[in-house]
């Protein structure tokens, strides 16, 4: 009886908290606490491998060091270039494939499944097997390229000019299906009557694409690019397996450099500052991007 009374006494709000409480606690423990801890560490000269050494407060020194280090800006340039080309190619090819697969033809389902396959592989595995594909002596990539035009033997991974393209190609191969799937969902949500009305108004296919298809699919495409952008900003495994950031540092993305500073050189304070800067950067860009995306949607 007593128990029943107590149970009756729980308000809706309390029940609500009871449900979300564990999730909130988990979020605080594995997201918020580490973030706050990292921010705290970023103001110290902490080295996680130097046991017993008390970290000292160094103010903004780590932030100044990160921002003044030429090598960091080189890594940021490499990351920006990687993001620009992968997003551009994935947007164009992904949209193109979605338009293709939106048509009804024999073998459509099979082709969709085949196109989507790379996305389902582990990035580390993809990195490893592309090193074989890129091998200048036995790799298929050289063979295929030379089939169309005889460039002779070239080393995609060992050349500083080609290595950045080698990671762009692999990422595009792997993740274009993702952009394609989202765009396809967008295309399938466009009501048919819009095209029928356009045909009545004698709009040609190009005009239909520009005035109906593109505006309808654009919010979907932008959403896909947002996801890809965030993912590629922190890209790590595929590139490490493929090039190890080399040759030299030609493909050393910011995330790879951060891992090396944090868990190989063990410069915990310095790398925390670097991580906070990267977080603020991606958070800032993400916010601006979402605002732009919402404006486009409202139109």
């Amino acid at each position: 009886m007593k128990v029943k009374k107590k149970f009756k006494g729980l308000s809706d709000k309390a029940v609500g908290w009871l449900f979300i409480g564990p999730s909130v606690l988990l979020l605080l423990a594995i997201n918020i606490y580490p973030l706050v801890y990292a921010i705290k560490m970023s103001f110290t000269n902490f080295y996680a491998n130097k046991i017993g050494r008390v970290p000292e407060f160094v103010g903004l020194k780590n932030y100044i060091k990160v921002l003044n280090k030429e090598a960091i800006w080189e890594k940021m340039q490499v990351t920006a270039s990687f993001m620009f080309w992968t997003l551009l190619l994935q947007a164009i090819i992904g949209l193109g494939l979605a338009l293709l697969l939106n048509r009804k033809f024999k073998g459509n389902e099979l082709l969709t499944t085949l196109i989507v396959l790379p996305m389902m592989l582990s990035p580390a595995v993809v990195g490893v097997f592309w090193t074989y594909l890129y091998n200048p002596q036995v790799g298929l990539f050289n063979y295929v390229v030379n089939f169309f035009y005889d460039f002779g033997s070239f080393d995609m991974i060992g050349s500083s000019m080609l290595a950045p393209w080698s990671i762009v190609i692999v990422d595009t191969w792997m993740w274009t299906p993702f952009t394609m799937l989202i765009c396809l969902a967008g295309l399938r949500s466009v009501p048919n009557y819009l095209y029928e009305a356009a045909e009545v108004d004698r709009a040609n296919k190009w005009q239909q694409f520009i005035y109906i298809t593109l505006p309808s699919v654009l919010p979907f495409l932008l959403l896909a690019l947002l996801f890809r952008g965030i993912e590629n900003f922190k890209m790590f495994d595929m590139v490490v397996e493929l090039t190890s950031g080399g040759p030299g540092s030609a493909t050393e993305l910011a995330s790879i450099n951060l891992k090396r500073e944090a868990f190989e050189k063990w410069k915990t304070g310095y790398s925390s500052a670097f991580a906070v800067i990267l977080f603020v950067t991606i958070f800032g860009f993400g916010n601006v991007y979402v605002k732009v995306m919402n404006k486009i949607k409202e139109r």
Partner: peptide, 16 residues
């Protein structure tokens, strides 16, 4: 910490 900069700089010069 001593190995990593050497790896990067030497690879940059020899291979790159």
């Amino acid at each position: 910490e001593l190995m990593l900069p050497m790896q990067e700089a030497i690879h940059d010069y020899v291979v790159n």
